[in-house]
Amino acid sequence: MQNSHSGVNQLGGVFVNGRPLPDSTRQKIVELAHSGARPCDISRILQVSNGCVSKILGRYYETGSIRPRAIGGSKPRVATPEVVSKIAQYKRECPSIFAWEIRDRLLSEGVCTNDNIPSVSSINRVLRNLASEKQQMGADGMYDKLRMLNGQTGSWGTRPGWYPGTSVPGQPTQDGCQQQEGGGENTNSISSNGEDSDEAQMRLQLKRKLQRNRTSFTQEQIEALEKEFERTHYPDVFARERLAAKIDLPEARIQVWFSNRRAKWRREEKLRNQRRQASNTPSHIPISSSFSTSVYQPIPQPTTPVSSFTSGSMLGRTDTALTNTYSALPPMPSFTMANNLPMQPPVPSQTSSYSCMLPTSPSVNGRSYDTYTPPHMQTHMNSQPMGTSGTTSTGLISPGVSVPVQVPGSEPDMSQYWPRLQ
């Protein structure tokens, strides 16, 4: 039975679970980093996980050691009161100082060594604690504590007292930064006198190289990059290397530039699409467009005044059976039934097929058609009795279509119309 579990990581490298990497692998990681390889490249070359490479390099940059820390136990506290007071002093002298600059000053002034120097995250935590204590304490208590930490007896009751030896409130920041720059020169002199001055200088240079600022491109470089971006948004590694040799930039910087440029292009394309949609959409909808001609068919113009009344309900007709019959029939052209047409008796099958359309009241044959006459024609229609054979009435077949029909004066039988409509 094995005491430890061995495995293979996602890159194909072998590791022992819970145990640190061998010293030979750690040394190779540092050597590759000094030669300029990126952590992701080191991870692929040595088949070590990216997190492990970053952790080893980060500890090497901070402490200069590649040895693993002790497994188990607690780390001794490195942010001692003396170190905290120095950090507060540096922050007062130059409020814009960075944590890694404070760390360098602690090393250069001999406050800490490589073994007990606090990390950048520890210094940031100390600065946050100082800021929170400043908010919790009152103004007087804060000034007393700062005077105690600074070891001075001057008056701290006013704002300019934060910067000793100065009279203009805006000047101390520059003086403090100048003092810090002077301390940086002392850093070089002190570290050069040490035993491991060369190694420390190499480590600091490598650290500065990794902690780079934003790349500033010249106009020629920007023009070359934009020209390549117009050709393709995704250049391959050969195109990037050719462009890197042409404009004297690292291939990694060119790759990052193209990634950022593609993101910018997507944002601009989104804005262009929004403007295009806004320009195509009308600002207001016309009133006429809300009524579609496919839904509402136009009603033909009436030929006679009587045809303006298109349904039985508008003429005072309360018989719903006839109203439904007229509205359900398709529109037909106007025609006239003459008196000489043969009077065919209704076929029983045809009569039964339209039995649902006729009223059940037996008085329908005896009703006159003056009910369908509009009010303004009552006088004219009353002067001509319906009993004469020459009287013409208008029957409504569908809305908007008038059918003048000659009705025999002897017997106005409704059943004569249905064979004609089939």
Rank of each mutant, 00 (worst) to 15 (best):
Q2F: 10
Q2S: 12
Q2N: 14
N3Y: 08
S4C: 11
S4I: 10
S4F: 09
S4M: 12
H5I: 08
H5E: 08
S6R: 14
S6P: 09
V8R: 12
V8W: 05
Q10T: 06
Q10M: 08
L11K: 06
L11H: 06
L11V: 06
G12W: 02
G12M: 03
G12K: 03
G13D: 01
G13Q: 03
G13W: 03
V14Y: 13
F15S: 02
F15D: 00
V16S: 09
V16K: 15
N17T: 08
G18S: 02
G18L: 01
R19T: 05
R19C: 06
R19Q: 04
P20L: 01
P20W: 02
P20Y: 04
P22C: 06
D23W: 08
S24I: 12
S24N: 12
T25F: 04
T25H: 07
T25C: 06
T25L: 06
R26A: 01
R26V: 03
Q27D: 03
K28D: 05
K28E: 08
I29S: 01
I29N: 02
I29P: 01
I29G: 03
V30A: 07
E31P: 01
E31K: 07
E31G: 11
E31M: 13
E31Y: 10
L32F: 09
L32C: 06
L32Q: 03
S35L: 15
S35N: 13
S35D: 13
S35Q: 13
G36H: 05
A37E: 08
R38T: 03
P39T: 08
P39V: 15
P39K: 14
C40A: 08
C40L: 05
D41V: 07
D41G: 04
D41Q: 13
D41E: 13
I42E: 00
S43V: 04
R44K: 09
R44A: 07
I45L: 11
Q47V: 02
V48P: 00
V48Q: 00
S49R: 01
S49V: 02
S49F: 01
S49L: 00
N50G: 06
N50F: 15
G51R: 02
G51A: 13
G51T: 08
C52P: 00
C52L: 01
V53C: 01
S54G: 05
S54W: 05
K55T: 04
K55S: 02
K55N: 04
I56D: 00
I56R: 00
L57F: 01
L57W: 01
Y60D: 00
Y61A: 10
Y61G: 03
Y61L: 07
T63W: 00
T63G: 01
G64W: 02
S65V: 04
S65H: 07
R67W: 06
R67P: 04
P68G: 00
P68E: 04
A70D: 06
I71T: 13
I71R: 14
I71W: 06
I71A: 14
I71N: 13
G72W: 01
S74G: 07
K75Y: 05
K75R: 09
P76R: 07
P76E: 00
R77S: 06
R77A: 01
R77P: 02
R77K: 11
V78G: 00
V78C: 06
A79Q: 02
T80R: 07
T80I: 06
T80V: 07
T80G: 05
E82G: 08
E82K: 13
E82I: 14
E82W: 14
V84A: 05
V84C: 10
S85V: 08
S85D: 09
K86E: 08
K86V: 08
I87F: 03
Q89T: 09
Q89K: 10
Y90I: 15
Y90S: 08
Y90L: 13
K91C: 00
R92G: 11
E93Q: 11
E93G: 11
E93V: 07
E93D: 08
C94A: 13
P95C: 08
P95I: 08
S96Y: 12
S96L: 10
I97C: 15
F98G: 05
F98P: 09
A99D: 02
E101V: 11
I102H: 06
I102P: 01
I102R: 02
R103A: 08
D104R: 14
D104M: 11
D104C: 10
L106P: 02
L107N: 14
L107H: 15
S108D: 14
E109L: 10
E109G: 12
G110W: 10
G110S: 09
V111Y: 09
V111S: 10
V111T: 09
V111Q: 09
C112D: 07
T113M: 10
T113L: 12
N114P: 13
N114M: 11
D115A: 15
N116F: 09
N116R: 15
N116Q: 09
N116E: 06
N116G: 08
I117G: 09
I117H: 11
P118V: 04
P118F: 03
P118Q: 00
P118G: 06
P118S: 03
S119A: 04
V120T: 14
V120H: 06
S122R: 01
N124K: 06
L127I: 10
L127T: 07
R128C: 06
R128G: 04
R128E: 08
N129S: 07
L130R: 14
L130E: 11
L130S: 12
L130C: 08
A131E: 11
A131M: 10
S132K: 15
S132C: 12
K134Q: 12
K134F: 15
K134N: 08
Q135G: 14
Q135A: 15
Q136I: 11
Q136K: 11
M137E: 10
G138Y: 14
G138R: 12
G138Q: 14
A139M: 08
A139S: 11
D140I: 12
D140C: 09
G141H: 08
G141M: 13
M142W: 13
M142S: 12
M142V: 11
M142C: 12
Y143S: 14
D144R: 12
D144Q: 12
D144C: 09
K145W: 10
R147L: 14
R147I: 14
R147H: 14
R147Q: 12
R147W: 11
L149R: 15
N150Q: 10
N150S: 12
